[in-house]
Amino acid sequence: MPFGEIVSILLEGTWVTLKIVAFALPLAAIMAFTFGLLRMYAPKPIKYVSVAYIEFFRGTSALIQLYWIYFVLPFFGVSIDAMTAGVLAIGLNIGAYGTEVVRGAMQSVPKGQYEASVALNFTSSQRLWRILMPQALVNMIPPFGNLAIELVKATSLVSLITIADLTYRAKSLADMTLQVTEIFAVVLVLYFVIAQVLAFSFKGIEKRLSRGLGRGGLD
């Protein structure tokens, strides 16, 4: 098969991969913040629910989670299409790791910041959102960047539940044409480019946020 054709088929797969990323990434972020904060601040029963979520999704394999959502849940009357199943499994899985990023970053804010916010009589939600979170956010961005890249790479799992993403197309193309080297070289480059774009964006966000923080002097 001509190289151009291979690339164009793989680009279609890339588009599918990007779609999964586009949905799974916000889901992961929402899960990370929600359960990361609940785990830290919520009253006991809710705290335990978040711990259960976090430990379950960190402690079992992402692939098995995906199989459960796609193949097993239908036996319990919950049928989910492949795309949604893929987004859910990957978003929930990476989100569980993200909770630890949120927690670590919140704890990295010096205790004196909390104390000053109490002394100035801010309400507890003002303390969280106006004082602690803006400072913690800067520390979250680099590890979140890492997780985002992890998420992109994890999307390749969806090829195992019949979604024609980049990995799926690469495998079918390779089976069909046996041009293994070209195909997987292109696949490598495509994943790498996605990851680099993400890494670059997170660097940008980090830079912007730290400028607001007044780190490194005036601006």
């Binding site: 010096p110 004196g112 910041q113 104390e115 000053a116 109490v118 002394a119 100035l120 009589n121 309400t123 004082i131 803006p134 400072q135 607001g212 923080l213 007044g214 780190r215």
Partner: peptide, 20 residues
């Protein structure tokens, strides 16, 4: 919250908000 209105505190390590 009500009682804190009476009080203000200055800290040894300042504890200024660095993002403001």
């Amino acid at each position: 919250h009500e009682m804190r209105n009476h009080l203000g505190m200055v800290f040894q390590h300042f504890n200024l908000f660095p993002h403001m």
